[in-house]
């Protein structure tokens, strides 16, 4: 049986594994850390669903759009209720369309915070991500929130 300290170490190790697989663009490996019914909530995108569906789709699209993605973990702690909390910075160079934003080969960096709820069987049962999508749009060259694709295209045409 694991002690409380073992649980905390396990939570930290799980967070590192999770983001190692995010950086590697390996959604199947991420899924290997989660329970079959694990949920994902991507707060800025209004996405709530299953890791096996919406989660895989999001992490696959992130990896596809930013093939040089780097994930830097800045802070981790595991709460007494089994929720691991992580602050990370992701950065990369856009190489394909992402969330409706056309590729202008811009480099971005973005601070995020994630909650990974760890279940009794030591698997992740819920993933929640917070970040400011406005910062992402700004870094990718979007000017207006109602013209995400158009403004980027206009900018490409004027370069």
């Amino acid at each position: 049986m694991l002690s409380e300290n073992d649980d905390l170490d396990f939570g930290r190790a799980l967070v590192h594994k999770f983001f190692e697989y995010v950086q590697a663009g390996d959604p199947d490996a991420i899924l290997g850390l989660t329970s079959a019914e694990a949920t994902i909530t991507l707060v800025p995108l209004g996405i709530r669903g299953l890791m096996a569906n919406e989660g895989v789709a999001y992490f696959a699209s992130l990896a596809s759009a930013f093939p040089d993605l780097i994930v830097r973990i800045r802070r981790v702690f595991t709460a007494t209720d089994g929720t691991a909390v992580a602050e990370v910075t992701i950065d990369g160079t856009q190489a394909g369309e992402f969330l409706g934003v056309v590729n202008q080969e811009k480099h971005f960096d973005l601070d995020q915070a994630w909650l990974l709820k760890i279940g009794p069987d030591q698997q992740i049962v819920a993933v929640t991500g917070y970040w400011d999508q406005n910062q992402l749009y700004r870094r990718l060259g979007v000017k207006r929130l109602d013209r995400i694709t158009i403004t980027a295209l206009e900018q490409s045409a004027t370069v």
Binding site: P44, A113, Y130, D132, Q133, N134, R138, V142, R144, L145
Partner: peptide, 20 residues
């Protein structure tokens, strides 16, 4: 204290559609 939120959601609710 550190805090995260999404400004797109905030601005959209307040009918402000400029990124900057």
């Amino acid at each position: 204290i550190v805090c995260y939120w999404d400004n797109v959601d905030w601005k959209t609710q307040l009918d402000w559609l400029e990124v900057d």
